[in-house]
Simulated assay, not measured.
Amino acid sequence: MSSEAPEVAGTAAKVDELPEHAEGGKYTTPGKEYTRDTRYITTRITADGADGYPVAAGRYRLVAARACPWANRAIIVRRLLGLEDAISLGLPGPTHDARSWTFDLDDGGTDPVLGIERLQDAYFRRFPDYPRGITVPAIVDVPTGAVVTNDFAQMTLDLSTEWTQLHRPGAPDLYPEHLREEIDAVNRKVFAQVNNGVYRCGFAGSQKAYDRAYDRLWSAMDWLEERLTHQRYLVGDTITEADVRLFTTLVRFDAVYHGHFKCNRNRLTEMPALWAYARDLFQTPGFGDTVDFQQIKEHYYVVHTDINPTQIVPKGPDLSGWLTPHGRGALGGRPFGDGTPPGAVRDGERVDPAHTASSMRG
């Protein structure tokens, strides 16, 4: 089970406790540390349908904004496992208002499968008085139009373990049973100090809160630098769930976290092992081909008006370095284990070429 998402509580979150990928509200509270609300809809889609939602091809739609790191995880895992035919993909735009993520990238501003303009409609279809943020990623039951789950941490684990009958031939095992204890331990540390750590820096409400978050972040980054100096992947010799979870933070680090969130002791490009590791994953099918740098920058700099009230989106940094040689093959390892890489990105799911690393030169 997920270590990041406790069961949903019955009370509404305070505005200043809403998750980063929730809608609206302030993100910082003067004098306080940033606290992420980790109460999600914990309904699961499983092979046995124990929660009332059995695995079934074509029944569900993954709604996942490319801008959001938590949603980016689900997009990557879906692609690595070859679940494109089993679970359709809805892509909200990179910005949202105080109410909801919106489907402004689609014709008429309406999701073509769900027929809704705002993701909140799927939440309200199941929970008319839903009290918390309308978050991505979310999986929606297409026949009813109702949200099933937004528990992003459990969601990707279930895609790996409950959807196996619909995996592509050659799909990798991203959560191998013999490594789960170590993967879970690494994930807990990475979530607390890195994935969420950058937000604790960016949304700190006082100097003391910022200093504490900054020190925790860089302690973990130094730990990762040391660990990845000697091994190609975080756990074992193949790509696992742990790598997916770390990657979506690293790929945003220099583009937004270093400056926007004041995580500026080093750029990622100044940490040899982490930078090479991140490039290795970026150049692996299923990772970099899901990343839209322009949407990422637009989301953070436009939505977080308490940090960036002018909403100016910087032109830099130069991101073309993501395509340079990484040399990580010398450490051994087999990216997909006994499996194979995913095929080409499907029509309609390709990142705009103008938003890729080769085009983002600052």
Rank of each mutant, 00 (worst) to 15 (best):
V15A: 15
D16Q: 08
D16S: 08
E17L: 11
E17K: 10
L18W: 00
L18P: 00
E20C: 11
E20D: 09
H21R: 08
E23W: 09
E23I: 06
E23L: 08
G24C: 13
G25L: 07
K26E: 10
Y27K: 14
T28W: 13
T28C: 15
T29L: 12
T29S: 12
T29Y: 06
T29D: 08
P30Q: 10
P30N: 12
P30C: 09
G31V: 03
E33F: 02
Y34H: 12
Y34E: 07
R36N: 04
D37C: 08
R39I: 03
Y40C: 06
Y40I: 01
Y40H: 09
T43G: 02
T43D: 15
R44N: 14
T46E: 15
A50N: 11
D51C: 13
G52Q: 15
Y53F: 15
P54K: 07
P54A: 12
V55N: 00
V55S: 01
A56E: 15
R59Y: 11
Y60V: 00
Y60H: 03
V63L: 12
A64E: 06
A65D: 12
A67C: 14
W70I: 06
R73T: 11
I75A: 05
I75T: 04
I75M: 04
I76G: 00
I76S: 00
V77M: 01
V77T: 12
R79W: 00
L81D: 00
G82D: 03
G82Q: 02
G82H: 01
L83I: 09
A86F: 03
A86E: 02
I87Y: 09
I87W: 11
I87N: 10
S88V: 08
G90D: 04
L91S: 09
L91H: 02
L91C: 02
P92F: 05
P92Q: 08
G93Y: 06
P94G: 11
A98Y: 02
A98Q: 10
R99K: 14
R99W: 09
R99C: 05
W101V: 12
L105E: 15
L105P: 01
L105Q: 12
L105M: 08
D107T: 13
D107A: 15
D107Q: 14
G108H: 05
G109S: 09
G109R: 13
T110Y: 01
D111P: 08
P112L: 02
V113G: 07
V113S: 05
G115H: 07
G115T: 07
L119Y: 06
L119M: 08
Q120L: 14
Y123Q: 04
F124Q: 13
F124V: 07
R125Y: 01
P128A: 13
D129W: 04
P131Y: 05
P131L: 07
R132Q: 03
R132W: 00
G133T: 03
I134S: 03
T135Q: 02
A138N: 03
I139T: 07
D141Y: 06
V142D: 12
T144N: 08
T144E: 09
T144C: 10
G145A: 08
G145V: 03
V147L: 15
N150H: 07
N150D: 15
D151E: 14
D151Q: 06
F152I: 04
A153E: 11
M155T: 03
T156H: 11
D158M: 01
D158F: 02
D158H: 01
L159D: 01
T161I: 06
